[in-house]
């Protein structure tokens, strides 16, 4: 009961903060928070696969990048909500095709297949003229919604916050559904789950498609926020980022990757302003979390709860 009241309070606070932020923050600060939101959604989608279903995908940038390029290619033709839905659908279809083949393998072999698909798309993006090569696609038009132009920082912030909010709600619904429970069951013991009559591969494919779709949505929002998409959106580092975020926050929880995304974006932002060698310091922070807090930041809360309970 107390947990439910706290969750309601946190949700109300998040909605009020989202509504007030454009009045309180500068354009640069709004962009920072847009980046945080997009990465939160991306980390949640990846954690559905790795943290909850136990599927070690190293190629999620493929779906993020496909969503981003879909927006980059069609922003002048299709209004944002429709284009974001199309980006999700495209990423989901790609995930269905990749997953149908890749999920015939397991463990490290599966991870390598997904990595290879991501790298293949990255290489293709460099050589397909319509995708702009190295320079990518610049000048992405944010268009308008109900005759309200989304070019301004505040208007786009509301669109971004609404899309991420709905995305988080959808992923929470998946997490809390029977489907989500089954994913965790087959992560814990796939053999036992199979011998309860469950088609393990079909459920894994379902998780892969859902994660791909929301990775595509995150990619699409990323392209709108930056108003440019380059091959960097498909690079293998882009597949590693959300895994690091989920590890920092806590992979075994639903909310951990969101906290991890905030910490990761904030740390990279802060260090990149201080030193050109910022990646080194981000690496040290990551090592700290892996060694000292392997279950992530949210595990501190559960330790505290256990102590106060004992």
């Amino acid at each position: 009961m107390r947990a439910r009241a706290l969750a309601t309070l946190a949700l109300a606070a998040a909605i009020v903060a989202a509504l007030l932020l454009p009045r309180l923050a500068s354009g640069a600060q709004l962009f920072f928070w847009e980046t945080v939101l997009v990465q939160m959604l991306y980390a949640l989608s990846v954690n559905l696969l790795i943290g909850h279903a136990g599927i070690p995908s190293f190629g999620q940038a493929a779906f993020f990048g496909v969503g981003a390029y879909a927006v980059g290619l069609a922003s002048a033709l299709v209004p944002p909500p429709l284009l974001l839905l199309a980006a999700m659908l495209l990423a989901a279809l790609l995930a269905l095709a990749v997953g149908a083949v890749a999920l015939r393998t397991h463990g490290i072999a599966f991870a390598m297949v997904t990595l290879a698909v991501g790298q293949a798309l990255y290489t293709a993006s460099l050589h397909i003229p319509a995708l702009g090569g190295d320079n990518g696609l610049a000048g992405i038009d944010r268009g308008s919604l109900f005759a309200i132009g989304l070019g301004g920082a505040a208007a786009f912030w509301y669109l971004c916050a609404a899309c991420v909010g709905l995305g988080i709600l959808a992923l929470w619904t998946v997490h809390a559904s029977p489907f989500g429970n089954l994913l965790r069951a087959l992560r814990d013991d796939p053999l036992r789950t199979r011998f309860l009559g469950i088609d393990v591969r079909a459920y894994r494919l379902g998780a892969f498609v859902v994660a791909g779709a929301f990775g595509g949505l995150a990619g699409g929002l990323f392209a709108y926020a930056n108003q440019i998409v380059t091959p960097d959106a498909l690079a293998w580092v882009r597949s590693g980022d959300p895994i690091i975020m989920a590890l920092i926050g806590g992979m075994s929880t639903f909310w951990g990757p969101m906290l991890g995304a905030f910490v990761y974006v904030w740390v990279t932002h802060a260090f990149s302003e201080l030193t050109p060698a910022w990646i080194l310091y981000v690496g040290i922070v990551f090592l700290f979390f892996v060694i000292v807090l392997p279950k992530g930041l949210l595990s501190l809360l559960s330790v505290r709860r256990q102590r106060s309970g004992s």
Partner: peptide
């Protein structure tokens, strides 16, 4: 496939028992 056999009525207990530990 194994899951279809289970639905048809084949149940199995393993030598090293497999339950959901959590």
């Amino acid at each position: 496939a194994p899951h279809l056999r289970v639905r048809r009525g084949v149940a199995r207990a393993f030598q090293v028992s497999r339950i959901f530990p959590s």
